[in-house]
Computed example of a mutant assay.
Amino acid sequence: MLQGWLASLLLVLVVSFSQPVHASKEMTQQEVERWLQSQVVLQKVDDFLLLVEQDDTDGLKFALNRLALPQQEVARFLLLKHIEDNERILSPKMAIFVQGQKSLPPTYTMLERGDGYEFSIPAFNYPAISARLIKRWNSDQKTLEFILQAESEQLVLRDWLSEGSDYERKIREDLLVKEFDSLSPKANAFISQQLTDTNITEWLPSTRVLVRMAQVNEDAALYDLLWKMRADYHSQVELERLASLSSPFAQQQIMAAARNPSLKRQAITELAQITPLPNEVKTFLVTRMTKVEDASFVASQLAQNGHGGWVRDVLSTNSQVKASLVLQALSN
């Protein structure tokens, strides 16, 4: 008797656990399109958007759950898609609601066909939209926190950019680069002076961060720090950008960058391309032609950019220029 009861129980358990927890139903592409264009569902979504504006998450959940399938899934998808497409700002309550949609498994699928493959995808993929919205919301929260800390003069740049994992530090760098120009002059100065008003010997932000801060402020002190750092892609691209501006300030920074051995040749090349050559740039290049290590390269770059005649004039009036090296460069 006991054995029979145990056998029956085992059979029930096997049957129960062998049943899928969530059975999907397949739709054709045409059916999906018809549902997405259903005027009844679209009207419901308009009603739900009013609840979003009112921040009524309880009412929204109740209204959605009252819908029968597949209208319910279509409405969830269209509602979240509208929020995403229109970049609506989510309140904390609404963010929790959106987060909850990610854990609701879609019932309806459709076949995705390609060259030699076929697989099922959600017909109304609201969990994917939910994930993107929450990612954006988290980013918005970090942005708000950064701005509030900067504006209240509570942000310690070194700590803020140094703490956490590599990924967290990268996110903060991205945030500063993106939002630095949106800060008030007061907040901007508070952050910038943490670099320019102290003797920094142990720490500087990355060149990417320093480039952005220097760009926004057009601050010679920030550029001075940048040119002292090890040159990389970001400092090289910034040199190119400065060269495209043709302003006296930009030209001064290119000349300053030449003090960095790794940037010197690029800086000289950019300066040699200026036409006509400003007096300050001429003075700088003449000084470089008095140095054994630079004379040949400077003269060569100037000649390639149509300034050979001016270089010959310099030779005839300045005895400090390394004449033999310059003449050899001009003859090549």
Results as ranks from 00 to 15, higher is better:
Val321Glu: 00
Ile147Arg: 11
Gly114Pro: 12
Leu9Arg: 14
Arg230Gln: 15
Val281Ile: 13
Asp85Leu: 06
Asn199Phe: 11
Glu53Lys: 12
Arg158Gly: 05
Lys25Ile: 10
Leu315Asn: 07
Ser165Ile: 14
Gln328Asn: 15
Glu218Asp: 01
Leu325Glu: 08
Met213Leu: 08
Asp159Ser: 12
Leu42Arg: 15
Gln71Asn: 13
Thr107Lys: 13
Ser262Thr: 03
Leu315Trp: 09
Gln72Thr: 02
Leu2Phe: 07
Glu112Ile: 09
Pro122Gly: 06
Gln72Trp: 04
Ser296Asp: 13
Trp203Gln: 04
Arg132Tyr: 10
Pro92Gly: 05
Asp56Pro: 01
Ser247Lys: 13
Asp232Cys: 05
Gln141Asn: 07
Ser162Met: 03
Ser235Ala: 01
Arg259Ala: 11
Pro185Val: 02
Met229Ile: 07
Lys322His: 00
Glu173Ile: 00
Glu240His: 10
Tyr126Leu: 04
Thr201Ala: 07
Ser139Tyr: 10
Asn188His: 14
Leu157Gln: 02
Leu69Gly: 01
Val311Gly: 06
His82Ala: 11
Lys93Gly: 02
Val156Cys: 07
Arg34Pro: 02
Asp219Ala: 02
Arg169Met: 09
Leu51Val: 06
Thr196Asn: 13
Leu161Pro: 10
Lys291Ser: 03
Ser296Tyr: 11
Glu238Cys: 06
Val292Arg: 12
Ala221Asn: 10
Asp56Gln: 11
Glu218Tyr: 04
Glu163Pro: 05
Glu280Thr: 11
Val52Glu: 10
Arg132Glu: 15
Arg66Lys: 15
Phe48Ile: 01
Val45Met: 07
Gln301Lys: 13
Ser139Asn: 02
Ala23Ser: 15
Glu145Ser: 13
Ile134Gln: 10
Glu293Pro: 07
Ser324Trp: 04
Phe146Met: 10
Glu168Asp: 13
Trp310Ala: 05
Tyr126Ser: 08
Met213Ala: 03
Leu36Gln: 06
Ser139Pro: 06
Leu226Phe: 02
Ile191Gly: 00
Thr287Gly: 15
Leu225Gln: 06
Ala63Cys: 02
Glu145Asp: 14
Leu222Gln: 03
Gly114Asn: 05
Phe17Arg: 07
Thr269Ile: 08
Ala250Asn: 00
Ser192Arg: 02
Leu64Ala: 05
Gln19Ser: 13
Lys228Ile: 05
Leu302Tyr: 04
Leu239Ile: 08
Leu13His: 09
Ser130Ile: 01
Ala329Thr: 13
Ser91Ala: 06
Pro106Arg: 10
Leu157Cys: 00
Ala214Phe: 00
Ser316Asp: 15
Leu79Val: 00
Gly164Glu: 07
Ala75Thr: 00
Thr275Arg: 14
Ser192Met: 04
Asp181Asn: 13
Ala257Trp: 00
Arg241Gln: 14
Trp227Thr: 05
Ala128Asn: 09
Arg208Ala: 12
Thr283Leu: 13
Phe97Pro: 11
Ser152Met: 08
Glu179His: 10
Asn65Gly: 02
Ser316Cys: 04
Gly306Met: 00
Gln328Gly: 15
Pro92Cys: 04
Leu78Gln: 08
Gln3Tyr: 10
Leu78Tyr: 01
Ala23Glu: 15
Glu112Arg: 14
Leu175Gly: 05
Ala258Gln: 08
Gln43Glu: 14
Ala267Phe: 00
Glu118Tyr: 11
Gln43Gly: 14
Ser103Trp: 05
Gly164His: 04
Ala7Thr: 15
Leu161Glu: 08
Asn199Leu: 14
